[in-house]
Computed example of a mutant assay.
Amino acid sequence: MSDKLERYRKKRDAERTPEPVPEATPSPSDGHAFVIQEHHARSLHWDLRLERDGVLVSWAVPKGLPGDPGTNHLAVHTEDHPMEYLTFHGEIPQGEYGGGTMTIWDTGSYETEKWSDREVKFVLHGERASGRFVLFQTRGKNWMIHRMDPPARDPLPSVEPMLPTERAKPPRDTSAYAFEFAFGGRRLLVPVEGGRTAAAREHPWLRELAASFGSRTAVLDGELATLGGAEILVFYDLLYDDGHSLVAEPYTTRRAALEALGLSGGHWQTAPSWPGEAGPVRRAAREQGLPGVIAKRLTSPYEPGPSKSWLLIPS
């Protein structure tokens, strides 16, 4: 019987990597376990592994599982992995094959609908990943993965930024608003999907931010501002989070979801917000030489274009 782990062993040195490197030839099995690992290696990707005949047949999926049947994702067929990899997570040393951090993104069982050399149809039953998928070979080790059932999430919103209406004085009912600094910078919507963002084409440093999201999909609203002599991307709204559109949700819900992300880095931060604090925030804006403050109605949804729910009040 051929050793299905021969290629796996040749790529790894058991004395240098914490990965399991079993010496024995795997025994046939009829189990149906799967694992998806998030792998921060040279480039972020997800490893899909399906138990088959005593090993984990594996594909590297750069953008993760597709959430919509209208979009197929690349899946690169890699060497079979040992069953012990079902529970493996840790740091593979740099310089070794696959060097980087690996975490378990999801695990569970699956059903096989078809398995051939060029096509695999299966149904995942996991905590985060579920549904019918098909893997099909395109060329060499390159395959594609397609979702066969309906979308598992809301579609990404395609909207224009919400813009404030200028007003000379704060609203009378300040308790109905949150107050934020107006930075006078350039607005920037940042979509993040599969650990990547199209905004990185213009701002390469956003690749680090996108990678930190892993498989979490989001659309962030922010502003490129100059603070302390440095350009900072200040985020103050969240339009989409982890498969759910927040556009119709009130400001308070979107703001809570944004703050829960804990966005803070060398080039970006979450804008501070003070509900009901019109006077102090306006004075602070004046002292810092900022153009003014934005009053945002707590109950307002995200409305593309000019809106009377956001008020720009000069400092």
Score class of each variant (00 low, 15 high):
4 K>W: 09
10 K>R: 11
20 P>A: 04
28 P>W: 03
30 D>Q: 10
32 H>D: 12
32 H>Y: 06
33 A>N: 13
39 H>P: 01
40 H>C: 08
46 W>H: 11
52 R>A: 12
54 G>D: 03
68 D>A: 06
74 L>E: 15
74 L>A: 14
76 V>F: 01
84 E>M: 01
85 Y>E: 02
87 T>V: 14
88 F>N: 02
92 I>P: 04
99 G>T: 01
101 T>I: 13
104 I>L: 07
105 W>Q: 10
105 W>I: 01
107 T>F: 13
109 S>N: 15
113 E>V: 09
114 K>W: 13
115 W>H: 13
115 W>M: 11
119 E>N: 08
120 V>P: 00
122 F>T: 02
124 L>D: 02
127 E>T: 12
130 S>E: 13
133 F>L: 03
136 F>H: 13
136 F>P: 02
137 Q>R: 10
142 N>Y: 15
143 W>M: 02
146 H>N: 12
148 M>S: 05
151 P>H: 00
153 R>M: 14
155 P>M: 05
164 P>W: 00
170 P>D: 08
170 P>Y: 05
171 P>Q: 03
175 S>I: 12
176 A>R: 14
179 F>Q: 07
180 E>P: 03
186 R>E: 14
191 P>T: 00
191 P>W: 02
193 E>N: 08
196 R>N: 07
204 P>M: 06
205 W>L: 12
209 L>W: 06
218 A>S: 12
222 G>I: 05
229 G>Q: 11
234 V>H: 13
234 V>I: 14
235 F>A: 07
239 L>N: 09
241 D>R: 10
247 V>Y: 14
247 V>W: 07
251 Y>D: 07
252 T>D: 07
253 T>N: 13
256 A>Y: 13
259 E>P: 08
265 G>K: 08
271 A>P: 03
280 P>S: 08
287 E>K: 11
296 K>V: 08
296 K>E: 10
298 L>C: 08
300 S>F: 11
302 Y>M: 10
309 S>P: 07
310 W>G: 01
314 P>C: 03
